[in-house]
Amino acid sequence: MSDTAMSPANGVATSRINWRLIVPVAVIALMVLLPFVVGTQSYLLGIAVRAMLFIALGQAWNVVAGIGGQLSLGHGVFFGVGAYGTAILFNSLGLTPWVGGVLGAVASIAVAGLMGAATFRLRGVYFALATVAISLCLEKLARHFIGITGGDAGLAVRFIGDSLSAAQSRSPLPFFFASLVMVVAYYVLTRRLLRSNFGYQLQAVRDDEEAAAASGVPVFRTKMWGLILSAGMTALTGALYVQFYLAIDPGAAFGLGQAIQIQLPSLIGGLGTAGGPVIGGAIMILVSEVTNWLSARTAIHGLDILAYGAILLIVVMFVPGGLLGRTRRGA
């Protein structure tokens, strides 16, 4: 039931230009052209991949947190399971990441099911606290069980050179297109979701759980499927991440810092909107590139975190709905 659209323009003839279609298409076209403009080996392509991975994580989180209102601080769990799962299966069993990534997503969905069952009776802050506990707990375990995870140092994916079956490449170009496909797919999915029955169920639950139940929305099931969809998307992004960086460590997977970074794109761009995480993620990467450059020049470390913190603070205090959000909400 994906086409239950009730667009605002319903029945009203509009002669205006449809920016909601033109802008995304133009952005995608420009992105496809990027490698031909800057060169296929460019440092810029690497940054673009980093940005799109960042955006994809934001898009995944946005499904359950932005649209569904379930403030998960535990998405590092799904990201970590996807990334570690893919890497471990490849290193120890030689399983191709194409399958490993899917298995990682399946594992992640199973974890999401357990997490949901354990935490969805809890609302608001209690839910957030429970998810952060699960994430931090996995971080400790990942640091301890060195045999499986490589401990503090993390896990390096065995590099076998350019190979399609191992999803490895010296050039960032394949990753550029893979992550572009992922971001576009997630964007289209989010837009369709927002106009689908399931999307409306999620939004109803976000706005008011009791009113949602009183309207016939199965609250628990809605939250559960929202978390499962979001977890699967997060894990697939984790798999792509580990193929690109060829490494993963407990902090990058399960740390609180990661949990917060996952939230930033949607928060800045606009919670619960399709374009929000894309714009927010792009801004974050710009900021992080500038601060990294400054850090290198001034030898002061942590400027990026300071900037993230400051941006988060400013957004939450002054633009609570994010750049694309209707600021009325929560204001």
């Binding site: 939230q263 928060l267 913190g309 988060l312 939450v316």
Partner: peptide
């Protein structure tokens, strides 16, 4: 929650 997290960062 986010504001507290931002402050902590």
């Amino acid at each position: 929650l986010l504001v507290a997290i931002a402050i902590s960062m």
